[in-house]
Amino acid sequence: MDELAHAWDRHDLPVAAGWELPPPQPRKGRGAVTSPPCRYDRFRAEAADDGWGTLEQDLADPPRLETTLTRDATRSIIAWNDSPDIGFDRSVNPYRGCEHGCIYCYARPSHAQLGLSPGLDFEAKLLFKPEAASLLARELSRPGYRPAPIALGSNTDPYQPVERQLRITRAILEVLSAFNHPCTIVTKSALVIRDLDILASMAERRLVRVCLSVTTLDRRLANVMEPRAATPARRLQAIEALVQAGVPAGVLAAPMIPGLNDAELEGILAAAARAGADAAGYVLVRLPNELKEMFTAWLEAHYPERAAKVLSLIRQTRSGRLNDPRFGSRFTGSGPYAGLLAQRFAAAARKHGLGRPSGGLDASRFRVPARPTGGEDRQLALL
């Protein structure tokens, strides 16, 4: 028994002689091809052949994976940070996990804090915060609160597919509008235009800016890299719709993955400028914790002929590793290849008039409503 426990702890239980685990296979509509175990777990389960010859077939033809929702009973909603790399100090995330399934998402490892896998669990086992709006109203009403832009979408997308039914992000916007509180939104979803009525009103008061993340103009690449996000064309249409409604909108070419989508940088900025974007940004791909293993497996499954080159180029921008978490370089990388990417972005941004956002958001309008009056203030009635 002790020997078996020791083998289990070392993750080296024997398998049938001559049998090898087949390579992981993509699932339709899902981004990750692997589900690494939670890094906080002491024990791990691994597939092993039991002699019946059925495991290989099961792994080659995995069943459909349904999305499940779990209520998040959080008692606070504003997340604070003091990172020197981020241009905001507070954010709100209506959801944990993201059904978009973007393989490169730096937020995936955060699912391990819930005891879940950063792989398929991240995109299929979601937590939602139904009390987010009332919690936000309560926190904004505290006597010592000092307003500054709140970021929506800093960890997971506030407009991922489940938002269509749950409408938590819309409720949050209603509270922010009622308090005249500024916010920024980053999303890959065209669903953002559903809330044009609120966003246009907030834009008139200089309370909101929206940024659409566009990683590629290649629909096929987008389909396997971010399978449940809006198509690139729909994201560009969302920028156009926002601008036409008077809502300032920009584009975020992120992440740029060397050897995979970085050749599209100039094309993405040009297309966004034609759609009416007035600002742009970019981020070099980040692969923290389990993401290194997951991204490698995804490359080998979808782009085996490019995998070695892409990983080599990433290492050239990350001091010889697949990830460099140091402040000051984690978003842009280092070395000649990263430097060239930065130069290309700067040149394209100048060419298309996509500088930094013009005109900041106005926090001076912030007021705690005297009492709820219905309409967009209905969430305050929950206080």
Results as ranks from 00 to 15, higher is better:
residue 258 P to A: 12
residue 192 V to F: 01
residue 230 A to I: 06
residue 242 L to Q: 09
residue 11 H to V: 13
residue 65 L to V: 11
residue 290 E to C: 13
residue 24 P to A: 03
residue 292 K to G: 13
residue 280 A to Y: 06
residue 18 G to T: 12
residue 231 T to L: 07
residue 233 A to F: 03
residue 321 R to D: 11
residue 358 S to D: 10
residue 118 P to E: 04
residue 255 P to M: 12
residue 185 I to K: 04
residue 297 A to L: 08
residue 256 M to V: 11
residue 204 E to I: 11
residue 102 C to K: 02
residue 78 I to K: 00
residue 16 A to H: 14
residue 50 D to P: 09
residue 304 P to A: 13
residue 150 I to H: 02
residue 228 R to P: 00
residue 48 A to C: 11
residue 248 P to E: 06
residue 208 V to H: 08
residue 240 E to S: 15
residue 214 V to G: 05
residue 120 L to G: 06
residue 336 P to E: 13
residue 1 M to V: 11
residue 303 Y to C: 04
residue 253 A to T: 10
residue 221 L to M: 15
residue 325 P to V: 14
residue 348 A to H: 02
residue 79 A to G: 09
residue 295 F to N: 04
residue 130 P to I: 05
residue 15 V to H: 11
residue 73 A to T: 15
residue 212 L to F: 08
residue 2 D to G: 10
residue 89 D to M: 13
residue 368 V to R: 15
residue 193 I to V: 15
residue 89 D to I: 10
residue 338 A to I: 02
residue 112 A to N: 03
residue 259 G to P: 04
residue 232 P to D: 11
residue 295 F to E: 00
residue 17 A to C: 07
residue 163 E to W: 02
residue 369 P to R: 10
residue 342 A to I: 00
residue 282 Y to Q: 08
residue 6 H to E: 15
residue 365 R to P: 00
residue 284 L to G: 10
residue 9 D to C: 04
residue 97 G to Q: 06
residue 83 S to Y: 07
residue 48 A to H: 13
residue 70 T to I: 07
residue 291 L to S: 08
residue 183 C to P: 00
residue 273 A to Q: 05
residue 120 L to H: 09
residue 146 R to H: 11
residue 176 L to R: 09
residue 376 E to C: 07
residue 134 S to W: 12
residue 317 T to Q: 08
residue 102 C to D: 05
residue 250 G to A: 10
residue 322 L to N: 05
residue 171 A to N: 13
residue 317 T to R: 08
residue 37 P to Q: 05
residue 194 R to L: 01
residue 354 L to E: 06
residue 142 R to S: 06
residue 132 A to W: 01
residue 293 E to R: 14
residue 343 Q to H: 12
residue 156 T to D: 07
residue 243 V to E: 01
residue 318 R to C: 08
residue 95 Y to L: 03
residue 366 F to I: 06
residue 87 G to W: 11
residue 296 T to R: 15
residue 21 L to M: 14
residue 314 I to E: 00
residue 179 F to T: 04
residue 99 E to F: 06
residue 225 M to F: 14
residue 263 A to Y: 11
residue 177 S to L: 15
residue 83 S to F: 05
residue 324 D to L: 15
residue 163 E to Y: 04
residue 11 H to K: 14
residue 342 A to G: 12
residue 87 G to H: 12
residue 280 A to V: 00
residue 321 R to K: 10
residue 14 P to D: 09
residue 320 G to C: 08
residue 199 L to K: 09
residue 191 L to F: 08
residue 63 P to G: 05
